[in-house]
Computed example of a mutant assay.
Amino acid sequence: MKKIVLLLAALMMVSSNGFSEEMKHEMKAHSGKKMPTRFQAVSADKAVILQEGENKMYCPKCGMTLPMFYKTNHAAHVDGKSEQFCSIHCLAEAMAEGGKVTGIKVVDNTTLEFIDVIRSWYVVGSSKPGTMTMTSKYAFGKKDGAEKFAKEFGGKVMTFYAAMDAVKSTLAQESAMVQKKQSVMAQKGEMMYNNMCTPFDANFTNTAEAKTYLTTQKPCGDIKGAQLQAIGLYLNSRNK
């Protein structure tokens, strides 16, 4: 009974207002043709995944499920390897690490296809939710599409370079905020792991890798959403 009470408490804390919107909405992760429940989301069958490998459904920086945040997805070649990010924030973090980042693409919110960022127009600061940030950033292939979106939902229309400058100006602050929230969530993930999972000693280089292991090997059963993200964060951090 004590374990059940502790687990319920952990789940309540994971979904509380103390966590970012991104983490809370992982609870509503979907697959197949199920309709999305979040503005950034598309059903998994409509999401274009450009990166390859067994971890391809997750952002390599934060581990978030890519279709859930597809409308803010970015992709690039990082040191020659194709990577796809949940947001311009995670792309900026990859760039800040000093690797060679080329061929940057972004999802066009009109067509839901990837386009080169050079010909994109961003709406920054609309009333729609941001991904890994409090300030939303949505891209469009045509300026009139961005202007129409801004007229309806607010925000400023700008080029990719201006949008990236805005991201870089607050990157350290927002990254620290995200890391703090992830640290708290990982603590809850440890509690869930101890109560739900068959113990194992596998090590992981990132949260995406941990989540793939959890969903394929199922040491914690058929978990998803907030449980999957929390335990994945814990597993990624426990040997670091």
Rank of each mutant, 00 (worst) to 15 (best):
L91N: 09
V124D: 07
L91K: 08
V107P: 02
A76I: 03
K148C: 05
T102W: 07
E26P: 01
K137F: 15
V106W: 03
G125C: 09
T72W: 07
T131R: 02
K56D: 12
S15G: 11
G103N: 12
V123D: 07
G145I: 05
M134V: 13
V124L: 08
V124T: 10
G141F: 04
A47D: 01
Y58P: 04
D45Q: 08
H77P: 03
L112C: 14
T111A: 11
T72M: 14
K105V: 15
F140L: 13
F19I: 02
S87D: 08
S87A: 13
D108A: 10
E26K: 00
A96E: 14
T65C: 05
K142C: 09
T131M: 08
K46A: 06
E83L: 11
M23L: 07
A92F: 05
K143N: 07
H77N: 12
Y122M: 08
E83H: 12
M95P: 02
P129T: 05
A75W: 04
K34M: 03
A41H: 02
N17F: 07
A10F: 02
G130H: 03
L11D: 00
E52F: 07
M134Y: 14
K148V: 11
K105Y: 14
A94P: 06
L50R: 08
G145S: 06
N109H: 08
I104E: 13
D144C: 03
Y138C: 11
K137M: 15
S127L: 06
E26C: 01
R38Y: 06
E54S: 13
H30F: 04
K28T: 08
N73Q: 07
S126P: 00
A94C: 11
M132S: 04
